[in-house]
Simulated assay, not measured.
Amino acid sequence: MTLKPHVAINVSDLDASVHFYRHLFGEEPAKVRADYAKFDLDEPALNFTLNVGGEVQGGINHLGIQVGSKEEVLASKERLQQAGLATFDEMDTSCCYARQDKIWVTSPDEHRWEVFYVKEDIEQQEKSNCCTSA
């Protein structure tokens, strides 16, 4: 059995969102229609779709992509900045009971994304506002 998570989000501007996610994922969408786009990612395994309309702000705290090294975090940052997207760094931070290097970027519809590398697990949080500073 092959498992691939599926995430579908509502967006207000498909072109702006496709531009953002193209650079966040470093891949072209597999399908684009007038009101829909699909990114069918192998790494990470994810079927991610954009749907025009509906409520764009829901109960999502944030979304993230875990990578294998700090270098991959920095490569993502460079790719996003070259696309004209603003990033926010949080290097050597503690969040979710782990020491991490991460960057944050926000989609056109205010969905907050982190690209992060877990350096080590830790027993205690060092700040109470984990994942809320971006």
Rank of each mutant, 00 (worst) to 15 (best):
L41K: 04
L24D: 00
I9S: 05
P108V: 02
I122N: 02
R22E: 09
V18R: 04
K4F: 11
A75H: 04
T87E: 06
G84I: 01
E126Q: 15
A75T: 06
L46N: 02
R112N: 14
A83I: 03
N10S: 10
Q100K: 14
D13A: 09
E126W: 08
A30H: 08
C96R: 10
Y21W: 06
K127L: 07
L3E: 11
A86V: 09
L41N: 02
K70V: 04
Q82A: 13
H111V: 03
G54W: 00
D89E: 15
L63H: 12
D13L: 14
D40T: 12
D40Y: 03
L80C: 07
F25H: 12
E123S: 13
C130F: 04
S17T: 04
L85I: 13
D42Q: 14
E28L: 07
D15V: 10
E126I: 08
T87W: 00
D15M: 04
L14G: 04
A75E: 04
Y36G: 07
S128V: 12
S12W: 03
N61S: 10
G64Q: 08
S94I: 15
F116W: 03
I65Y: 08
D15Y: 02
P5Y: 00
G53I: 10
K70S: 07
K31H: 11
S128W: 12
Y21D: 00
I60Y: 13
E114H: 09
V18G: 07
S128T: 10
G53P: 00
T2A: 13
K127C: 06
H62A: 10
P5K: 02
G26K: 05
F25M: 04
L3C: 15
V73E: 00
A30G: 12
G84T: 02
M91N: 07
E43A: 04
G53W: 02
T132Y: 11
P108G: 03
P44T: 01
D101G: 03
S107T: 06
P5Q: 02
V118C: 10
D101M: 01
D15I: 14
T132C: 08
Q100E: 05
Q57S: 05
V11N: 04
T87L: 06
I103Q: 00
N61F: 05
G53V: 07
A34I: 09
A30R: 11
C95V: 08
H23K: 04
K70C: 01
F25Q: 03
K119V: 09
P108Y: 01
E71D: 11
A83T: 04
L74N: 07
G58E: 05
V56N: 01
H6I: 09
A37F: 02
Q125V: 12
D42K: 15
K38D: 12
E110T: 08
K4P: 12
L74G: 11
T93G: 10
F48T: 03
Q125Y: 05
F20Y: 08
D109N: 11
H19F: 05
D121C: 08
K70Q: 13
E120I: 06
C96A: 09
V7P: 02
V118W: 02
C130I: 06
T93N: 09
Q81R: 13
A8T: 05
V118P: 02
R79E: 04
V11L: 14
P108H: 05
E90H: 06
Y117L: 02
I65A: 09
Q81N: 13
Q82H: 11
D121T: 06
V105S: 07
S12R: 05
S12E: 14
N129G: 15
A30Q: 12
H23Q: 13
K119N: 07
G26F: 09
L74P: 06
W104L: 02
A37G: 10
C96W: 07
